[in-house]
């Protein structure tokens, strides 16, 4: 058991180290002179050199790498080339929006999807099941940004129910409650659209797992024991499904960062996703490097956490994991 965790943690650290090296190399090989991108080309060579020095780009590569690792591990990501403010400060101002957006929509879609998926599995051949089978294929085929753009067009442009862009009105309204209401009004459509895009996949996934489990011998035997339907569905079928669902939930967390990039671009939200896009397209090494490091950190910790949780919720794993994988 201990050896297993040591190995998992070891490989997590290895991946983080790899990401650090890749990050460092990737962004130092990017085309486009970073100094040129932040300053006027008409600057004197002395001024350019001084800027290079400020950002440490004049030092030899090993020194640059050492400084990079040291500062990254202490979450000091340097100054953003594009905005001229510390990257950490930029991230901190954006993170709450992204967390609100992703957290609420993921929770909504997972809960709704699980509920509908269970219902569909219990009522094979029903209209609901057909809808869910269909919605899974649709949510897999329709580009998320297209659905969001269409919603935006319908409910913000054609029927101006929701705002077209932004996280807050300009200028923001005064007063705590008014500010909160304004924020919720701005976040409603992005959150709703992300949840809408996500729940079909969840429902289909849960439905498929549930159909498989409902066909197992132990469910037939639970019926043979004369247990009420609720016990069978929740106490046996869903309880068996739960570890897998929790794992998938955690493992899907890093992936929804992609959703943040798209959604924040479509709705012009002040979030981490759009920051990442701007950093990548604007050759903003410190910002992009920080984003990628944090993304890797998120991925690795979600993987570890899902392993941990699986071990806690599924008794079958507690023993087997010792030697396998």
């Amino acid at each position: 058991m201990k050896g297993y965790w040591a190995r998992r943690t070891g490989s997590a650290l290895l991946i983080l180290g790899l990401v650090l090296v890749l990050n460092f190399m990737l962004f130092r090989m990017m085309p486009g002179d970073p100094v040129a991108s932040i300053i006027d080309p008409n600057f004197s060579p002395e001024a350019k050199a001084r800027l290079s020095q400020v950002y440490g780009l004049d030092k030899p590569l090993p020194v640059q790498f050492w400084r990079y690792v040291k500062s990254t591990l202490s979450f000091d990501f340097g100054i953003s080339f594009l905005t001229g403010r510390p990257v950490m400060e930029e991230l901190r101002s954006r993170l709450p929006n992204t967390v609100t957006l992703l957290g609420t929509s993921l929770l909504l879609s997972a809960l709704l999807g699980t509920w509908l998926g269970m219902k569909a599995a219990l009522r094979r051949g029903s209209f609901l099941e057909k809808c869910i089978l269909w919605s899974g294929a649709v949510s897999f085929s329709f580009p998320s940004f297209f659905v969001q753009l269409t919603l935006l067009m319908a409910f913000a442009a054609a029927l101006p129910v929701f705002p077209l862009r932004g996280t807050l009105s300009v200028p923001p309204p005064a007063g705590g409650m008014a500010l909160l209401a304004d924020y919720l009004w701005h976040m409603a459509l992005p959150v709703f659209s992300l949840a809408l895009l996500g729940f079909g996949g969840w429902a289909l996934y849960v439905r498929n797992l549930m159909v498989k489990i409902l066909g197992e011998d132990f469910i037939l035997l639970a019926r043979a024991r004369g247990l009420p339907q609720r016990n069978i569905v929740m106490g046996h079928a869903f309880r068996t499904l739960l570890p897998t669902l929790l794992t998938i939930f955690l493992l899907s967390l890093p992936g929804i960062v992609s959703g943040a990039v798209i959604t924040e671009t479509v709705f012009s939200l002040h979030g981490v996703g759009r920051f990442l896009l701007e950093a990548v397209t604007g050759h903003d090494y410190p910002a992009a490097g920080a984003s990628f490091f944090l993304l890797a950190l998120l991925t690795v910790s979600c993987n570890l956490l899902s392993d941990l949780l699986y071990g806690v919720t599924d008794p079958r794993v507690r023993m087997e994991r010792g030697g396998r994988r």
């Binding site: 197992e216 011998d217 132990f218 035997l221 639970a222 019926r223 043979a224 024991r225 004369g226 106490g235 046996h236 309880r239 068996t240 739960l242 570890p243 919720t313 599924d314 008794p315 079958r316």
Partner: peptide, 20 residues
């Protein structure tokens, strides 16, 4: 079911819910 007539399944069957 079970109160009047109970079932003893095949041993090789996956007859118990694995997480309980």
């Amino acid at each position: 079911r079970w109160r009047r007539a109970a079932l003893v399944p095949q041993g090789a069957m996956n007859s118990f819910t694995p997480v309980l």
